[in-house]
Simulated scan of single mutants.
Amino acid sequence: MSYLVIAVLCSVAVSVLLKVLRQHQIDIRQTIMAGYPVAFFLTWTLLKPDLSATADLNAAWGIILLLGILLPLVFVILGRAIESVGIIASDAAQRLSLIIPIVAAFALFGEVLTLQRTWGIFLGFLALVALVYRTPEKANATNSIYSRVNMSQRIGLAKVPVGLWLLGVWVGYGVIDILFKQVAKQGAAFPLTLFMSFGLAGVLMCLYLLILKTRWDNKALLSGIVLGMLNMGNIYAYIKAHQSLADSPSVVFTGMNVGVIAVATLVGVFAFKESLSKLNILGIVLAMACVFVLFWG
């Protein structure tokens, strides 16, 4: 339970940092790239991966390759989605990616679908829908903020139908959740997988920015130190949560997604003075009910 709380708080802190960076028109692509060497170093220092076991990774190389590609790629896709349709629709697609790992928990990981977990998951889905909903007026107001972000930060990808960007966000985050579950199943070997994945992600993101001939920004790069620390805390705690609740992956998947969006909603209200509709407030209540049913029911 404590690991899941830490993962939720770190994830929300990452979202808050990215929101602040966007408000100050800082190129978050560079921040993301700079964050991976920090996470790489922290993994080496704190988790002490056994490099001698590299030859024994076997099937884990597939996970490393997928994470190394997807971790930076989903950030790029998310940025493009926000640019195309705004933060509201993009955030909804990200959080509703919960559907993919939840289905995988029962279809791939052999979890037993009890009545209690069915109700908990159902409440979680209702909470997600209620929390991501915004009235058209509020959505337009939020999107207008991001339309004023420096256009030099466009990520240089060819024009793609809007729906494909949202689909990319949905699938990308859902697959990453499943991959982290697989990493958690490695037990004591998971630090090495994280270490290699962070290293590959950092290299690929750097190459991507070099290809685009990016003009480097010291503020963006320094912000990467904070982002890397939070990202490392989020992923480490998330994997430990899966290990401590190894027989209940759906609890972790649901608790993480519902917890993040509920806490983020509260932060938005009290820190950024965003307003909540009655439906959003209902979503917070449903989120708390979901957590209660899944953990203590």
Results as ranks from 00 to 15, higher is better:
T118M: 13
R154D: 01
Q116K: 15
A130G: 11
I102E: 00
E137V: 12
G163N: 08
L131T: 14
A104Q: 04
S147T: 07
I99C: 02
Q116C: 11
S152D: 11
R148P: 00
E137R: 07
T135G: 02
R117P: 06
M151Q: 15
I100F: 03
I121Q: 00
A104T: 12
L113V: 03
Y146F: 12
I155K: 11
F106A: 02
L128I: 15
S144P: 07
W165C: 07
Y133K: 05
T118P: 15
F125G: 01
A141W: 08
N143E: 13
L131A: 04
T135C: 02
T135Q: 05
V132G: 02
R117I: 10
V149A: 06
T118W: 09
W165N: 05
T118R: 07
K138T: 07
S144T: 06
Q153N: 13
V149G: 04
L131S: 08
A141C: 10
L108G: 14
S152M: 10
L164M: 08
V149C: 05
L115V: 11
Q153H: 15
V162A: 13
F106L: 00
W119R: 09
A139R: 14
A107S: 15
N150R: 10
L157T: 06
A141M: 12
L164V: 05
G120W: 09
F106R: 03
P136A: 04
E137H: 07
T114F: 07
L115W: 03
I145N: 13
R148L: 04
F125H: 01
I121G: 02
P161V: 04
R154I: 09
Y146W: 10
V103E: 03
L167P: 11
R154K: 11
G110R: 04
I102A: 07
R154C: 02
I145V: 15
L123G: 08
E137L: 06
R134T: 00
W119P: 09
R148M: 02
F125W: 00
A127T: 08
L108I: 15
R154H: 11
V112P: 04
L164C: 07
E111H: 00
I100L: 01
A158I: 14
A127K: 05
L128Y: 06
R134P: 12
V129Y: 05
T135R: 07
I145H: 14
R134L: 01
P136G: 03
I99M: 01
G110L: 02
R148H: 01
I145L: 15
F122C: 08
I155S: 12
K138E: 02
R154P: 02
S152G: 08
T142S: 14
L166M: 00
A158G: 13
K159Y: 13
I145Q: 14
F106Q: 03
G110E: 03
L115K: 11
L98P: 04
G120D: 13
V112C: 04
I145P: 15
F106M: 00
S147M: 09
L157E: 01
G156P: 06
A130Y: 09
P136Q: 01
L108P: 15
L166G: 05
I155M: 10
Q116S: 12
A141L: 11
F122N: 06
Q116N: 13
L123V: 08
R148V: 04
N143P: 12
V112I: 09
